[in-house]
Amino acid sequence: MSPLPSPGAARPGGPPSLPALVRTRVRAAVRRPSRLTPEETAGRSLILRLVSLLLQYPDAELTEGRSELTGVVQALPGTSAAKHLARFTDWFTAQHPEALERHYVEMFDLRRKSGLYLTYYLHGDTRRRGMALLALNQRYKAGGWNSDRGELPDHLPVVLEFAALVGPGGGEAPLRQHRRGLELIHQALTDADSPYRHVLAALLTLLPPPTEADRAAVARLVAEGPPNEDVGLDPYGTYGDGEFAPPGTFAPPTAAPPTCVPPVPTSRMEGPR
């Protein structure tokens, strides 16, 4: 089920169909203003929305709308992003739904280097990650957008939907901030020969070129993976010889005297007769 509902597109008594979602979002993208030309704004917003949809779990609703999604992609101007998306939708349309589900789970749920939760690549499972998630939620609220869609705010499809709605500048800032994580996901998908690499490649064409520092950081991520799980330690600094808190703060309690256990009666030791 898509976590990005669109008002006015619901079927009576049920969730909105994917074709209705696509049509509504195409119209919204065409209408949305930005600092770019209207044509550039519409194309950029539509690419972001398509990438957001294609990176969601391929449930029945999404797979039922594959032909319309393919038609939308084929109608895009012949940009590099559009060519990448066309390569993906060619594969996506030809696969059996169960095969799509298995491949998605393998790529995005079972691999540390290609998960879709962006703050993990920057902070690992640390307290800083919690603060980064809070900051993202605050950014969404400041932009007048409710991000309570059943996913963490750093889930890439959610971040992409916000970017499409708000536009270049503030809307795409989280994508630029997590450029290295996006590069790592793309590299991992490429190494796995997954067609989803084309979806990430389409997204990366919209971002500024990576710097030398970005390339070096991505190389380290490829070699070492995301940060180790060090919840509560490094994000807040250490004291002395690696102590998390000042010496004596967490002094262990005095050991209690041993408990006296009464002897077991001989009759109990003999067992049932």
Rank of each mutant, 00 (worst) to 15 (best):
E39I: 14
T41M: 00
A42H: 10
G43K: 00
G43S: 05
R44G: 05
S45A: 15
S45C: 12
L46K: 01
I47Q: 05
I47P: 02
I47L: 14
I47G: 03
L48Q: 10
L48H: 12
R49L: 15
R49D: 15
L50E: 04
S52F: 00
S52Q: 01
S52V: 02
S52L: 02
L53C: 01
L55D: 07
Q56R: 09
Q56T: 14
Y57V: 05
D59E: 13
D59S: 08
L62D: 04
L62P: 07
L62V: 10
L62F: 08
R66P: 02
S67E: 14
T70I: 00
T70Y: 00
V72R: 03
V72W: 06
Q74N: 14
A75W: 06
A75V: 01
A75E: 11
L76E: 04
L76H: 04
P77Q: 04
T79C: 12
S80G: 15
S80C: 09
A81S: 15
A82H: 01
K83C: 11
H84C: 14
H84W: 10
F88T: 07
T89Y: 00
W91E: 12
A94W: 03
H96G: 06
H96L: 15
P97R: 06
P97K: 07
E98N: 11
E98A: 14
A99Q: 15
R102E: 08
V105Y: 09
V105P: 02
V105M: 07
E106L: 12
E106I: 05
F108N: 09
D109R: 11
L110S: 01
R111T: 11
R111N: 10
K113Y: 00
K113L: 02
S114D: 08
S114V: 06
Y117S: 07
Y120G: 04
H123I: 05
D125W: 03
G130T: 04
G130C: 04
M131D: 15
M131I: 14
A132H: 06
L133P: 01
N137Q: 12
Q138H: 12
Q138I: 06
A142T: 13
W145V: 14
N146A: 02
D148W: 02
G150M: 08
E151R: 13
E151Q: 15
E151L: 09
L152W: 07
L152I: 02
P153M: 09
D154R: 07
D154T: 09
D154Y: 10
L156G: 09
P157Y: 08
V158H: 05
V158N: 02
V158L: 14
V159E: 06
A163K: 06
L165P: 01
L165Y: 13
L165H: 13
V166D: 01
V166C: 04
V166R: 13
P168L: 05
G170Q: 15
G170V: 14
